[in-house]
Design a binder for these strands. Structure first.
Lengths: 219, 219, 219, 219
DNA sequence: TATGAATGAGTCTTCATTCAT
DNA sequence: CATGAATGAAGACTCATTCAT
């Protein structure tokens, strides 16, 4: 397709970017991959589309990463894991009480989302859903570090009478994710649906904290 | 041309299913499509895989639906819309107070999920996420019927002092979806992660209602 | 495609034509085939397009003719041969002199063309051109009956001093065809090109006769 | 997915032609396309057959041209137009009188035909006949340059008494084409029909000029 | 007599991947 | 360091053909 659409100008370098920028090229490809992944899903993303997103030749993707799967692995190692670290870090600093733990999770997740806008869609599609390409990642490397730690602490707190006894401590972790990552993944659609351009990250966080704090507050 | 010369000897009919079962075949194909859609995402689902899921020849899919997009449309018309109806119906019966509205939504969604197991993953991938194939469906046909109605009622209740004033009535709709559809979409992974085969639909519903009722119940 | 586009209404007969009209159906199919053949060429004509041109089910074509090739043979036998007969008949009635022979050919061809509008395009594409599907027809069954007879008579006339000695009697046959069938095959395009809606069959015949009679008539 | 697991062992490069011969390959493909077009007609020519005519993989055709239609366009731009130029050039050089104009056309067409053997069949099938793929080419780019110019000059000459008054100047253009391109398109068949291997391009030209000069020369 | 269902082969096109330069 | 050339496999879709009814 490349050959057919743009006239082949041999030896002339495509404009816009200096030659020989070595490792930056790699970074650019990883970013392009993430953009495509979160836009269309990993399985539906072709190497061609990543290459054209990055403005390079498809063969270059093989040159740097060797393989579709190896590219995916590199994206995980060099980008996705860092994003999870952003969520995990504040949890380590939080002292034992549930309030600060939850607040740490909610704001840590908010930070991660604003720093890595591709995170919610990628997570929802590729980790949460059956058949997602990154499920094993969650189970092997994230779960022990975040959800299981949280669930354990919630269970302990509940045992100490510090948490609504009708909640399931494990499902509470799920609920927390459903109240943070999930709304972020659908942000554009909510905004459009409710004509709610005024809802920003802060408003979301406050709403979530309020809901967790007192529930609906029904009479 | 070669094919014209040697007379084709048709292969013996595949075992397992009687031929000529007419419209049932169509239904089977719709089901197979839904299974594949929710497993791999619409964009990544090939007609081949749908056909092989249904145990038929790929050409038969064209025979019944003509084309990839028309199959997708048929799935939406004849399957997905019915699922949304299951969620909407109890809302119409709910009287004005917020408690029964929320309870109606939570249990209606629970019913829909147990009746249509493909719903959560499909919704999350194809409606929620950017680039999803069914986004316009939500905006055009579901949003006016469910989320916007809910948001309006929540806002009214809040104005009447019947709802936690720190909540955003629009985000509350999002939160409700995040507390119902989202956990369902990831059910297998939660179960595996927490070794929680004991968590069933009832447990989930009770946990969710408890959280919505009083929040975390922190001291 | 059929199944996908028009809603299948089982057992209900498509409108427009009474059922069970037996042999007429066959005739209609032959006509439809000729229409498609002359419009797109035999090789590029699908049985589907013939069926839809005739307003019937593709399977019916097999029912009547068994096979793509057998349909083609039937078209030749039952339609094309008759058209050639229209050209040949006046030649048999023409007396020996060249003038009446040529006039017989020109007007016989004109009659055939106006009676069988598909003839010129079919002949040009499928007989004249390399790779045409009806070449053997011409060589086996038409050539001995028309062109070779003409060439022989022209040669005799030339020997008797009754024909321009610079002509090649065999090529003269070719020229005659080129001055009759060929213009007819392109009639629509000539008319459009020269804005010449006024050129009808009579005008064509007169022009051709005039050219053959005296040539360009240059000073 | 199966394909992903077993490592592909590339087949040894086909013999007969060195790899990486760049733009020559493109030319070869254009030639192969023309050969198939004139042999089977454009609509009935598959990319497969073009590729195998050129001894390459079908995917390479897409690599160079992107698409069936773009290949066809390239053939027209880079081959067919050049052939028409060969016919047009001598007409521009011809002085005003009809004799030299006609002689220029006849010999220019003869040159074009001998240089581009695919021209007659292609023209007859794809320009002349209804449904031909290149009709618009003739109307838009060739007609104004050749046929309409000729018709205008013939009409002027006829007005000046220099042309047989019984001829139609527009049809005369048609007759000229019918006496040159048309016989060439059927050359193989005439030769076979009349056992006339002795008829070459020169003989054809002389016959045609003689016919145009004096007609049949009947007593 | 006629047709809906079904299928294998083929066509166009895209894709991942390799290789020589 | 980078890319143009090339290819096999697979995807969407069409087609001729068969068969049971």
């Amino acid at each position: 397709m490349a050959a057919a659409t743009r006239k082949r100008i041999p030896k002339a370098r495509r404009a816009g970017r200096p030659p020989g920028d070595g490792p930056d090229q790699r970074e650019r490809l990883l970013d392009a991959a993430l953009a495509c992944y979160s836009r269309k899903g990993i399985a539906a993303t072709s190497l061609r589309s990543i290459a054209s997103e990055a403005g390079v030749n498809p063969a270059l993707v093989h040159y740097y990463f060797g393989d579709k799967l190896q590219l995916q692995d590199a994206v995980v190692q060099e980008r996705v894991m860092a994003a999870f670290e952003t969520v995990r870090a504040p949890l380590l600093r939080a002292d034992g009480n549930v309030a600060s733990l939850v607040a740490g999770f909610v704001s840590g997740m908010g930070d991660a989302i604003s720093r890595y806008p591709w995170l919610p869609a990628l997570w929802v599609r590729e980790v949460l859903c059956e058949g997602g390409a990154l499920r094993s990642l969650l189970m092997d490397r994230v779960a022990p570090a975040i959800p299981q730690v949280l669930a354990t602490r919630f269970a302990a707190a509940q045992g100490a009478g510090e948490l609504n006894p009708q909640l399931d401590p494990r499902l509470l972790v799920v609920s927390l994710v459903g109240l943070t990552l999930f709304p972020a993944a659908g942000a554009p659609i909510w905004r459009q649906m409710f004509q709610a351009e005024d809802i920003d990250a802060d408003a979301m966080r406050e709403h979530t904290i309020a809901l967790l704090d007192r529930g609906l507050g029904l009479p």
